[in-house]
Amino acid sequence: MSSSGGKLFITGHQGLVGRALLRHYASKPEWQIITRTRAELDLRDQHATEAFFATEQPDQVILAAATVGGIKASYTHPVDFLLNNLQIQNSVLSAAHRYDTKKVLFLGSTCIYPKAAAMPIREDSLLTGPMESTNEPYGVAKIAGIKLCQGYRHQYGRDFICGMPANLYGSFDNFDPEHSHVLPSLIRRFHEAKLHDTPTVTLWGSGNPKREFLFVDDLASACAFLLENYSSADIINIGCGWEISIREVAEIIREIIGYQGEILWDTTQPDGNPRRLLDISRMEQLGWKATTDFRQGIAATYQWFLDNRATARV
């Protein structure tokens, strides 16, 4: 297990997950947090990444940097999702090995799991069937990252661990309607519909798929917990163990925002996976649980959106 304190390199610190990690570690002065913007260090560049590791010599790394997005973004830009993520992972993991980083936490995604996986999804269902096609470019890259971490552990004894978070939401999310995930997209859509007094909002799909949503500050807590308490080649799920339909989510967001119009569902558009609920028993056995109520998390996210409209990714 890891000792507490030292140099921690948080990759992707300006993203949704990275910002939550910075908030979490702000109260932990024993850690010296190292960050680099994309302009300062392009993690896809192997040579630049190795030079950074040679200079900074981080004790631990949380690999949260990734090219991410919803169904539409993944479907439209498969090369970006596959190539960027492979390059980031390969650069960081190989540099961490070469410069003797003590521990790395690699963050994956639920989209690595087969489309037809039994619910709730157990970690050992990985690679037992085909993935949902809309998520495949991102999922394939993440599976490659998992296998690379496991390879470094097997071949070189590296303490590289892999956490698989549920769908995330919270402050500093991406609210761009073309590239965002479902929750920030719905917040943006309903906010603008209310603002412009639009009579209807049309949403993709049937609204029937169910999803598990994890507040990003809960994920940050889980990451710190895993660095301290987990060391295994096995991937581990990070979630809240609770699911809700997209239709219900839309109603909750509409209510919180105060939009009075009608919701229409465009069933000619894809739904994605029908369900996505993680088996979180392993995480619970270790002693960690998510604590944020979904409605309160949505309200906090919407308040952040209102407070940061000028600088939010929209």
Rank of each mutant, 00 (worst) to 15 (best):
V182D: 00
V182C: 06
L183S: 02
L183Q: 07
L183Y: 03
L186S: 06
I187M: 14
I187L: 12
R188Y: 14
R189P: 00
F190N: 08
H191A: 11
E192C: 05
A193N: 03
K194S: 04
K194D: 02
K194Q: 11
L195P: 01
L195Q: 14
L195T: 12
L195I: 02
L195G: 01
T198N: 03
T200Q: 04
T200V: 00
T202V: 09
L203C: 11
W204G: 01
G205P: 10
S206F: 08
G207S: 04
P209M: 07
P209L: 09
P209Q: 08
K210F: 03
E212C: 00
L214D: 03
V216C: 05
D218V: 13
A222T: 08
A222C: 11
C223K: 02
A224K: 08
A224C: 04
A224D: 14
F225V: 13
L226W: 06
L226H: 06
L227F: 09
L227K: 07
N229A: 08
N229Y: 06
S231G: 10
S231K: 12
S232W: 05
D234K: 14
I235Q: 07
I238W: 01
I238C: 06
G239E: 04
G239K: 09
C240E: 11
C240V: 12
G241T: 14
W242G: 00
W242L: 05
W242R: 15
E243G: 01
E243C: 01
I244L: 14
R247T: 02
R247E: 07
E248Q: 15
A250Y: 12
E251V: 07
E251K: 15
E251M: 12
I252G: 00
I252V: 09
I252C: 02
I253C: 11
I253D: 08
R254C: 11
R254P: 09
R254E: 07
E255I: 01
E255Y: 09
